[in-house]
């Protein structure tokens, strides 16, 4: 039991390190860690079970810096956290049409594109599923491994969703399958890397908060590496010839372990449509001047 608590302390330290200073204030009930607690944490870190082929646990993006580079082609545009900050390739005519039709409000959207939430059409505003890979960047994600399937449970947003990665060797022809918000994914191990190829995505989802589109032709190639007990790395390449003129090669995204297998607790983080509608009528729409869809103000 002591070991479990010690491991948890280590993980809380890790979580605090990778969070904002404000979030770190809730670390260690009763005050800052004592020297003895720090020593116990350091000693127990070495005892964390580590298997490069076991990704189980709750992970969170390590908040790696994304360069806010001005793109001279677009003006105020900057690299998006999406795809690890890698700049997007040129869009096709279809892709540009979708991009222009998407009206984002999220903080990560470009200033020139951002509109008041009441006037935007981010799927988030109606509790539509965020889809993959957008969910990956919006909070913690738990990996659960079974003999034939890995489940990713996304736990931020607000949204709570599950993605299946089949690892039982099956073959899928996604041309014959209906697209899904979280696609159809097949995984296999090559050495210590988990290779995940997926397709069959519902094109109503945005890739991220800036409104980059994808089509139902999108294929994702992901490489997962687990180089040590506390670290998960994901590198993703997006190939969608209907939306982009060439593949979008992402940068490596680093995630840190927050809670290990056996100690995970998820926050119930549903986007509830009735609550969303109430918020929209009570706050979002009147704040944006959309009085036709607001509660009575007087």
């Amino acid at each position: 039991m002591r070991n479990r608590i010690g491991s948890l302390v280590v993980l809380l330290i890790g979580a605090a390190v990778f969070q904002s200073p404000a979030a770190a204030q809730v670390f260690f009930p009763g005050g800052p860690a004592s020297d003895a607690q720090k020593a116990a944490a350091a000693a127990s870190q070495a005892k964390l079970a580590y298997d490069p082929h076991d990704l189980s646990g709750i992970w969170r993006g390590a908040g790696q810096a994304v360069p806010q580079i001005k793109d001279p082609r677009i003006g105020d545009a900057h690299a998006d956290p999406l795809m690890g900050g890698a700049p997007p390739p040129p869009m096709t005519a279809w892709g540009k049409e979708q991009f222009d039709a998407n009206k984002p409000s999220a903080a990560e959207s470009w200033q020139s594109r951002r509109v008041a939430p009441a006037l935007g059409n981010d799927p988030l505003g109606n509790c539509d599923p965020l889809g993959y890979p957008r969910s990956l960047g919006r909070g913690p994600v738990e990996f659960i491994q079974t003999p034939g399937k890995i489940l990713q449970i996304f736990n931020g947003g607000p949204d709570m969703a599950t993605r299946e990665i089949f690892t039982d060797g099956r073959k899928l022809d996604t041309d014959d399958l209906d697209p899904r918000w979280y696609g159809w994914a097949l995984g296999h191990w090559e050495g210590n890397s988990l290779i995940v190829d997926s397709s069959g995505y519902d094109e109503r989802a945005w890739l991220g908060g800036n409104g980059f589109p994808h089509s139902d032709q999108m294929k994702l190639h992901e490489v997962y590496n687990h180089p040590d007990a506390m670290t998960l790395e994901i590198t993703m390449t997006l190939d969608d010839a209907k939306a982009y003129t060439k593949p979008w090669v992402g940068n490596k995204q680093t995630f840190k372990l927050v809670l290990p297998k056996g100690l995970t607790v998820l926050y119930e983080e549903y986007c509830v449509p009735s609550e969303e509608q109430s918020f929209n009528q009570g706050v979002r729409n009147p704040a944006g001047g959309d009085l036709a869809h607001s509660r009575p103000l007087k």
Binding site: Q19, A22, A23, Y267
Partner: peptide
């Protein structure tokens, strides 16, 4: 503690 950690990781 785990719930606290859950809050922590989701609070940013």
């Amino acid at each position: 503690l785990a719930v606290l950690a859950g809050f922590l990781v989701g609070s940013v």
